[in-house]
């Protein structure tokens, strides 16, 4: 195929222990390390491997967000993507608006495959890929752990609750990636230098001509209920006694 479009979302790094702000207005993000959503990094890695097998030409990475997301796009270019598109928004936007923006860019770019992470690790919504597929009227293969391209079709193995499901989809299609699809490569310093010369185009979300979706408002954030630390026992007899005490054995 000529082209693969990959979505990269800028999110709080997965190693950061996220804390709710004292006033409940959100979570602390000031001075916090930001990274490519790990599932999206897997999506880009898969695109690169497909190209390395000679099954794709160009790889375009795209992000929707503030101008800061250029950093993640540059990282994507350093990993090996050819070109980047930033759809610039003032702040965070909802999944349906994101899907509509992806649809608009997919219409312009005509990719044979769109690869996205199965979910972003900030809002944990897991919606954008499925929504894009719906609006585009194209197949979706979510939670992919294996992707095999066969010309006009792809066979995708999906991690589902009962095991592994394999489906065949006509291309173009939207595939969302699960953890075990691959292990993303590390970026090398010379590639970071080279990435600075690769094209990164910015288009304002408002200029895409995309209708904004009805928004679900986030009215309050709170920390999750915490479990209390229980008791430590010294041996198996103590363990069994404790469980009998609790009436669970």
């Amino acid at each position: 195929m000529e082209k693969i479009l990959v979505g990269l979302k800028r999110v709080v790094d997965y190693n950061v222990r996220v804390r709710v702000k004292a006033d409940g207005s959100g979570v602390e993000t000031d001075g916090v390390k930001m990274s490519i959503n790990p599932f999206d990094e897997i999506a880009l890695e898969e695109a690169l491997r497909i190209r390395e097998r000679g099954e794709a030409g160009e790889i375009v990475v795209m992000s929707i967000g503030s101008s800061d997301a250029q950093q993640q796009l540059r990282t994507g270019l350093a990993m090996g993507a050819d070109r980047a598109i930033l759809v610039e928004t003032a702040g965070d936007i909802d999944p349906l608006s994101r899907a509509r923006a992806f649809l608009e860019i997919a219409g312009r770019e005509q990719p044979g495959l769109v690869l996205l992470g199965k979910q972003a690790i900030d809002d944990d919504n897991s919606q954008t890929g499925q929504m894009l597929a719906a609006l585009w009227g194209r197949p979706q293969a979510t939670f992919a752990s294996q992707i095999e391209l066969n010309g006009e079709t792809a066979r995708v193995t999906r991690e589902v609750d009962v095991g592994l499901e394999t489906i065949e989809v006509d291309l173009p299609a939207v595939v969302t990636t699960d953890l075990r699809l691959n292990e993303p490569r590390y970026v090398k310093l010379p590639d970071i230098m080279k990435a600075k010369k690769k094209p990164l185009d910015t288009v304002a979300f408002d200029d895409l001509g995309v209708e904004a979706a009805p928004v679900i408002r986030e009215t309050a954030f709170e920390p999750p209920a915490q479990r209390q630390k229980g008791i430590m026992v010294d041996d198996i007899a103590g363990l069994l006694a404790a469980l009998r005490d609790k009436g669970v054995l």
Partner: peptide, 23 residues
């Protein structure tokens, strides 16, 4: 919010023109 529902429901939400409330 099983893999069945996570796969299906956002596709339905998009067809209905709304965002989904997940989980």
């Amino acid at each position: 919010s099983t893999t069945f529902g996570k796969d299906l429901m956002p596709r339905v939400a998009a067809l209905l023109g709304v965002n989904q409330i997940s989980d």
